[in-house]
Design a protein around this nucleic acid. Structure first.
Length: 266
DNA sequence: CGGGCACCCTGGTGGC
DNA sequence: TGCCACCAGGGTGCCC
């Protein structure tokens, strides 16, 4: 479910609760989301450790621990972190902090993965962060030219660019007026600039709007986002395009629903 | 490298 | 009301 904006919203919400706080207690209700480590070892690696930093890379949340190890959380399709809500039906484990605050990992679908790692080697092949400031027009255009894939598929590839998912890939292509099936190496410099602009604008706007709750996404306070009210094509099959009045179309690309306006995306 | 697909797992929805 | 196929914001691995 969560793409870059949703993960970033959650990170910001829980930052003050976890930063420089020591984990006092771990409760595990369903260990299937915890990968590569036994529940007992998971507890042992966390209890008594302080979280020295919490950052985000692509759709990963990175908790640095005082032990030097890393708690790496990926929310998958339906995961979220909820502050102090014991009533959640899909709670999988809970991090209890000094002072009594509790954060629950909640995931109805269990595509999410939680790991304890020695380093961030696992993330080394992820592409640039679109909101990081380091990604310029020239660089982005050169990146596009290196591949000969349908542009929508490329935008979803985390090794190409970090953080875009199905919603924002569709929205960014709409913004730039690019058909999702266009081959990436055929995108002009002008279109490439527009696409990068769209990616940055839409992701920033979504963070400000608290992310998109197209389905059931809720943030760390259990609230829905507002960005779904600003989406132009995603989930709008058959509805009029607000730019040209044409009908939004849905096709399948790489086994993912893909929404676009056939009239203004060429 | 690119394309296509199965698969991981669970739940909600819409059609019949 | 009941059943079932289909769909879902992600990612990996395999085969051609």
């Amino acid at each position: 479910m969560p793409e870059l904006p949703e993960v970033e919203v959650i990170r910001r919400q829980i930052y003050k609760i976890v930063k420089n706080r020591t984990i006092k207690k771990i409760e595990i209700m369903d260990s299937r989301v915890i990968k590569g480590i036994t529940p007992a070892e998971f507890k042992k690696q966390l209890v008594g450790k302080k979280i020295t930093e919490l950052s985000r890379r692509a759709k990963y949340l990175i908790f640095n621990l005082s032990s030097g190890k890393i708690l790496l959380v990926h929310l998958g399709m339906a995961g979220t972190l909820i502050i102090g809500d014991k009533g959640q039906k899909y709670n999988k484990y809970a991090l209890g902090f000094e002072g009594g605050k509790v954060i629950y990992y909640c995931d109805s679908r269990m595509f999410g993965k939680t790991r304890i790692l020695d380093n961030l080697e696992m993330l080394q092949n992820i592409g640039p962060e679109p909101l990081g400031g380091g990604l310029g027009r020239e660089g982005f255009f050169n990146m596009l030219r290196k591949h000969k894939v349908k542009i929508k598929i490329l935008l979803l590839n985390q090794a190409f660019l970090a953080g875009l998912g199905n919603i924002y890939a569709c929205e960014a292509l709409y913004y730039a007026g690019i058909h999702p099936k266009r081959k990436s190496d055929k995108i002009t410099r002008r279109e490439s600039d527009k696409l990068l602009e769209g990616i940055k604008k839409i992701l920033s706007q979504s963070v400000k709007q608290g992310g998109s709750s197209v389905d059931r996404y809720v943030n760390a306070s259990g609230e829905k986002g507002r960005m779904q009210n600003h989406l132009k094509v995603y989930g709008r099959e058959g509805l009029p395009c607000e730019r040209c009045g044409g009908k939004v179309k849905k096709i399948n690309l790489g086994q993912r629903g893909t929404y676009y306006c056939p009239r203004c995306q060429k």
